[in-house]
Design a protein around this nucleic acid. Structure first.
Lengths: 418, 418
DNA sequence: AGGGAGCCTGAATCCTCAA
DNA sequence: GTTGAGGATTCAGGCTCCC
């Protein structure tokens, strides 16, 4: 169900204790008007986020949060999405309205985003405050995969405390370890790495500050079951309601803008969810390189590239990444094959030179392929790699020297990495 | 230099405008006493973190923050480390003392830690507030590697706006792309993934709430240059000062506990920094499997194992990880070799059955190796894998059936992964 | 009901032993 | 002797249980 109007009016008419989950994404107190002007779009959406003072902003929220608390069931939860602009004032308010004892989590939504370098750190997260109405809130335990450092094969073994009070693996009379029947994984963390909605994503509606469906799905699945009622009093483009619908929950959306309500209705009628590989499989699925390859590149100070068959990385000079592609010969391919790959991959980009590192030790060789200068060398261990890379660079023709004053670096730590 | 005593007294004697960076890690308002009860330790450190009220806690901090602001240079910065217990009240206070306009970042220190199943989400982050004394603060630009999804080979190309105002890759007269000479990487984010100090780390001193040196090094390198003065008014085990010393900065530490001062002095005399693989190389260095292997396991719903030569992962049933090891036959090994590996790896742990997935398509076969039942099947593509795994499980002996009702899953996305 | 003791867990290290 | 696979160990948070 959708309502157009001031959410305070509409909330006050809703029955007490009728909602299982409230997610709200109010204006963040950014003190500016948000609009998205995608050239192709038929429609231009915008909303105001300018306030007289932080006090005015907080009073605005307070009136509404009091009503939200009222309409929430005793087992219900509320998720308030905000950012650094007012997160501290909002949490003080939430403590007041819902009670400190009902604070459950500060969820950090972290993402990578296109950057325009500024003085200081890039803002790559937003905050979501999770409060329950009571200690008896509904919560569906959710688990993640174990960390790569966890000894999963070990922790199947049951443990006990021995005479000294030390923990040790439990053993049956015969000396065999006793195993657990199953393991669940690790409880979900409060730091969520979910990609920011890419400017190119099909899911985008043109509405500013639109949130990814995946984020809302996670919130809904954590605290509700199918059929439960989900309320979004600042529904905007309607992402919360789309997610609720896709998961078989009932939903109620409020927004004061008729454009927003129209858009939401249209999205509900025909939901589009980006099947982005990044969203569904995570950034790790992009990592095509093994730990060995990655640590080898780290030691040679090479910036890895994950999406190109003919380029494993780019050489760095003094911390700067240079347009000099590097390729490692693979175990099942010949050196000429590897060279062919890097030449093909470099052609479009007009890189002037590249490096191929072979699997067998060999002297440095420099050859021209069309307009590309390729150096090949072989490594079997780190010292050799550095030495080869060094002599490789010394052997480079004079006119290319200025481009490639690579200094072979000391390894970053004493530990042998491969 | 180290001072024992109440930092308010000692701060008030420090000259105005004499410090470049202040990092403080005050008690978090946890309302409990922190102690580390390591059995073997000679010494037991503890500190009180119980307060009459949040008001008392904030006043305590306010008096001290006012002095800290005074001793800071105009180009100086302060980093206040806290957690969800009082972060909102602390930020309100910082706004008051340093000015809203001098807020720079909310840094999220995120980490994985030994878990503690609870209702709700695991607390896996702490907050660090970064304020400057003025807009003219010292800041050393710092860069990270590009994300795995970035088209690095593309971003070397210069861009321009064409007639329609759209951005496009710049081309020379001959139609070739023009390349940038170098790229720096991505500016550092405000979400920092740095490992938590593990219970087994040599770097541990026995002092509770000890922070990793790596975290402090990053803060110091961001806002100071060699020779600059770093102040930690709640220095505890002295991590800030160790990091400052290692980076050639001057340092000043204050703590009211003489145990803490003694410990800090001892650490300064002989700094121990864990050369931990995780800290220095990141979690990805633990991933021994290629993207192909990992995505294959994801599709078959297998939990990967990274530390065992004879086990690639464990089978899941209904989302639960079961003690059923799975091994993929490698390209350069025979099926019997693979079976030998999984049998050896499983022997000590007394797993009852395992699965070997071969490289060639073949029917499912079940054989006994000592007390271990091994099922082998072959796959060459996804559809075949699902079919094989399915028939494999149907072929499993009756008495093991209850252990392995694996249902072959639908692929999670349309993209063909192998 | 309230407080304290003890249990369970898994991340990440240390450390042993076999190749 | 060297390496590295994998077995052993630590410990704080949050739970339960007991007094």
């Amino acid at each position: 169900m959708l309502h157009e109007g001031d959410n305070l009016q509409i909330l006050s008419k809703l029955p007490t204790g009728s909602v299982d989950l409230i997610y709200l994404d109010p204006p963040f107190f950014s003190q500016r008007t948000h609009r998205l002007s995608s050239k192709g779009a038929k429609q231009k959406f915008e909303f105001e986020d300018t306030w007289e003072s932080i006090g005015a902003y907080i009073s605005f929220l307070e009136l509404r949060l009091i009503e939200m608390r009222r309409v929430l069931k005793d087992t219900g939860s509320i998720f308030l999405h905000c950012d650094k602009a007012a997160s501290h004032h909002i949490r003080v308010l939430l403590d007041k309205v819902f009670g400190i004892e009902n604070f459950q989590s500060e969820i950090i939504w972290s993402y990578k985003r296109w950057s325009n370098s500024k003085k200081g750190l890039l803002n790559n997260h937003q905050n979501i405050y999770f409060y329950s109405k009571s200690s008896d809130f509904k919560f569906i335990p959710t688990f993640e995969a174990y960390s790569a450092t966890t000894n999963i094969d070990q922790i199947f073994q049951k443990r006990e405390r021995n005479a000294d009070g030390k923990a040790a693996y439990k053993q049956s009379a015969s000396g065999d370890p006793e195993l657990m029947k199953e393991k669940k994984g690790v409880p979900l963390s409060d730091v969520w790495s979910i990609p920011f909605l890419n400017p190119k994503a099909k899911e985008r509606t043109g509405y500013p500050t639109q949130k990814p469906i995946l984020l809302l799905e996670r919130i809904i699945e954590l605290t509700t079951e199918p059929g439960d009622m989900v309320l979004d009093p600042f529904c905007g483009s309607g992402t919360t309601l789309i997610a609720a619908k896709l998961l078989g929950r009932s939903y109620l959306g409020i927004d004061k803008s008729s454009d927003a309500i129209t858009l939401t209705q249209a999205r509900l009628d025909a939901p589009v969810k980006t099947r982005s590989a990044l969203m569904e499989k995570g950034v790790n699925s992009y990592r095509s390189k093994s730990g060995l390859e990655r640590s080898r590149m780290e030691m040679l100070d090479i910036q890895p590239v994950e999406r190109n068959k003919g380029i494993d990385g780019f050489a760095k000079v003094g911390g700067q990444i240079r347009p000099i592609p590097v390729l490692f010969q693979k175990a099942n391919e010949s050196l000429p094959t590897a060279v062919g790959k890097i030449v093909r991959a470099s052609a479009k980009n007009k890189f002037r030179m590249g490096v191929v590192i072979g699997t067998e030790n060999s002297d440095v060789e420099i050859r021209e392929y069309d307009s590309l200068t390729i150096a090949t060398c072989g490594v079997s261990d780190y010292a050799e790699a550095v030495k080869s890379l060094d002599s490789l660079l010394k052997a480079i023709p004079k006119d290319l020297q200025s481009d490639v004053e690579i200094i072979a670096k000391e390894p970053k730590c004493d530990v042998t990495l491969f």
